[in-house]
């Protein structure tokens, strides 16, 4: 059974003249690492807001079609109920930390749910260790770098032990090295804990290698949906102008030139280097 399933989902913001997403039908399986991408304004963020009921409960507006997340109909469940199952991490780390210390922030969701104190303490420590920020637990948010702040935001969602984690461009304010580390944390959570990850990203060069599933949106619609290697090789993807990783581009250019390379499309520099080594029969 899919963890997220939408059927003909169409949504218009209050006062909007045209729908921000229209006719979106997708399925995301349990344990998957799904990547949603597409040009700015294509409706990615709007779709994310539907996953925990911010749309329509917080934003109002008109939602048509069906959407079920972890088996729950978002229309029938308030946001705080959905929050136990689906965690959202936003783009700007600064605006999702409210408390004056890291551990207090991580505890925030559990406090809201009325979890007993001893249990909160246990889960907070577990989460801090898992995300590698235990040493920062007493720091104030303004004493942290952007990368550390985003880790805190991820930890504060993780503490609520959701089945699905949705991250909306979580690294766009970070430098590439911090971004790389964040993606690694996310990937480990996906693999170790089996949390379903839905990641919205432009930077495919850093993320494509982790994905099991890519959904490409354009102008409010899903235009491509499938296996990453296939999607990133398609002519459509190139025409829409999503940032195809350079390693993948190089592979296709060489293929076009008639070079014999294995048929597994590379998504990262490592994979591409290995393909080339294979073709040139060298071993490093």
């Amino acid at each position: 059974m899919p963890v997220i399933e939408t059927k003909n989902l169409t949504y218009t913001y209050p006062g909007g003249t045209k729908p921000s997403i229209s006719d979106v039908s997708i399925k995301i399986k349990k344990g998957e690492f799904a990547l949603i991408t597409g040009p700015s304004g294509c409706g990615k963020t709007t779709l994310c807001r539907c996953f925990n009921g911010l749309i329509p409960h917080f934003y109002q507006g008109e939602l048509k079609g069906e959407i079920k997340v972890t088996g729950l109909n978002i229309l029938e469940n308030p946001i705080y109920e959905m929050a136990k199952h689906v965690g959202l991490v936003f783009q700007n780390p600064e605006n999702q930390l409210f408390a004056l210390s890291v551990e207090k922030d991580v505890a925030f969701g559990l406090e809201n749910l009325g979890v007993p104190r001893e249990e909160i303490r246990k889960r907070v420590n577990w989460t801090l260790n898992l995300t590698g920020i235990y040493d920062l637990r007493e720091r104030a948010p303004h004493e942290l770098s952007g990368g550390q702040q985003q880790r805190v935001a991820i930890a504060s969602i993780l503490a609520m032990q959701p089945e699905v984690m949705v991250l909306d461009e979580p690294t766009s304010f970070l430098d590439p090295l911090s971004a790389k580390k964040i993606f690694k944390v996310i990937y480990e959570l996906n693999k170790k804990l089996g949390i379903t990850v839905v990641l919205v990203e432009h930077r495919l060069d850093l993320t494509a290698r982790y994905a099991d599933h890519i959904i490409v949106m354009d102008d409010g619609k899903v235009v491509l949906d499938g296996e990453p290697r296939e999607i990133l090789s398609s002519e459509e993807a190139r025409l829409i102008g999503i940032g195809i990783p350079k390693a993948t581009r190089l592979y296709h250019i060489l293929k076009k030139d008639g070079v014999k390379l294995s048929n597994t499309v590379p998504l990262s520099s490592d994979e591409m280097a290995n393909l080339l080594k294979e073709a040139l029969k060298v071993h490093d």
Binding site: K180, K246, A247, L250, S269, L276, K277
Partner: peptide, 13 residues
Amino acid sequence: IVPPQIAQIFMQM
């Protein structure tokens, strides 16, 4: 700084 992808490929060979 992380090197650009093309440079990474070349560095690995």
